[in-house]
């Protein structure tokens, strides 16, 4: 089957509008139809899984993660806002959250803030429980994604995540979307699917989560901080507390910080092996 190549091509060309993508997918469906019985029926959820398979094995493996320096976090919540602006998440959906009472009471009076995205665990319990494999960990870079077209909205993954990193889209909207201002028609760049919010249409009714802004990766699966292609929360962090990068790359900030400082991960006892580390 030649699906991976076509998908790759779609991925490489960011100028393709969602409509063109849909047409190409339809064309693709016809091609594959001969090979797979009922390919039309199975269209749901082909795109994301294909992206993952296409990249697996052929390219260098990465393990994206974050090292968050709690001593540098001032609790400004710019990361929360930047994430919302980037991904156009609705009310009640927060890919990252800032906690201010995680450790309390403290012996000294210092505040401690903790920003918490999805940890993109090495052993993500959310992935195992999904009855339809709509959520999975990408082979090429370990990012845990949700296929909005396949997800049935059962929310089992939300119960299985020990870190409350998943959010259900209840179809609530901020006023500018509700009142149908110009902002309402701005699509979300998530997964490069450029979906516009519409009643009852995915991602409404889906479970949503942080994906390390993977739509900002280039064709080789790389981010670039200088070009601004960097997860929105890390890019905007006023105190430079959120460090992002490839944990397998010895030259990366995250690798260096983990070598030099002592880091902790949350709920190690569950064996999930988060890829987000905290410096205390």
């Amino acid at each position: 089957m030649n699906r991976p190549t076509v998908e790759d091509q779609l991925e490489r060309d960011p100028s393709l509008s969602p409509m063109e993508r849909r047409e190409m997918l339809a064309l693709l469906g016809k091609w594959v139809g001969a090979a797979v019985a009922g390919a039309g029926v199975f269209r749901a959820g082909e795109a994301l899984a294909q992206q993952s398979e296409a990249a697996a094995g052929t390219k260098r493996k990465r393990r994206y993660g974050m090292v968050i320096d709690t001593r540098r976090c001032v609790g400004c919540r710019a990361c929360v806002i930047a994430c919302k602006a980037e991904n156009k998440t609705p009310p009640g959906v927060y890919y990252t959250v800032v906690f201010d009472h995680v450790i309390e009471p403290r012996i000294d009076d210092k505040p401690l803030f903790m920003t918490k995205p999805c940890f993109h665990c090495e052993h993500p319990p959310c992935v195992d429980v999904c009855p339809v494999s709509a959520t999975f960990k990408r082979e090429q870079d370990g990012i845990v994604v949700v296929d909005y077209d396949r997800c049935i909205g059962c929310r089992y993954c939300m119960t299985a995540c020990p870190y409350s990193a998943r959010w259900f889209d209840f179809d609530e909207n901020y006023a500018p979307v509700e009142e149908n201002t110009a902002y309402a028609s701005v699509p979300s760049p998530e997964y490069r699917q450029f979906r516009r919010r519409a009643k009852g249409r995915s991602p409404v009714g889906n479970v949503r989560k942080c994906h390390f802004c993977l739509h900002l990766q280039d064709e080789n699966g790389e981010y670039n901080k200088a070009e601004g292609r960097w997860p929105a929360c890390a890019k905007t962090c006023t105190g430079h507390a959120i460090h992002f990068g490839d944990l397998l790359d010895p030259a990366s900030d995250v690798h260096r910080l983990l070598r030099e400082r002592v880091a902790v991960r949350l709920k190690e006892e569950l064996g999930t092996e988060p890829n987000v580390f905290y410096l205390l």
């Binding site: 009640g92 927060y94 959250v97 800032v98 906690f99 201010d100 009472h101 995680v102 309390e104 918490k116 995540c161 020990p162 870190y163 409350s164 949350l266």
Partner: peptide, 9 residues
Amino acid sequence: EIRGLGEAI
């Protein structure tokens, strides 16, 4: 699951 989640949001 993590203390203060409701308060944080």
